[in-house]
């Protein structure tokens, strides 16, 4: 990043969404012609939330 990121950056560019979870949200955004990509999410780490949490902290 070349400059300090700020929350209001979000107000400048068009919203482009990565949807992780309920697929209906992705369909609704598509109907509004918003750029969206839906992640075919499954519980990671064999369904163990604690290991999933650890993996996210390790950057995985």
């Amino acid at each position: 990043m070349t400059r300090e990121a700020k929350p209001q950056d979000l107000f400048i560019d068009p919203i482009r969404v990565v949807n992780v979870g309920l697929e209906t949200f992705a369909h609704e955004l598509e109907s509004l012609e918003v750029a969206v990509i839906h992640v075919d999410w499954r519980p990671p780490a064999g369904g163990d939330p604690q290991i999933a949490d650890l993996l996210s902290k390790l950057g995985s």
Binding site: I15, V18, L22
Partner: peptide, 10 residues
């Protein structure tokens, strides 16, 4: 979608 700016998590 490399220029995505928002993750919607549910």
């Amino acid at each position: 979608l490399p220029d995505a700016n928002l993750a919607l998590i549910s």
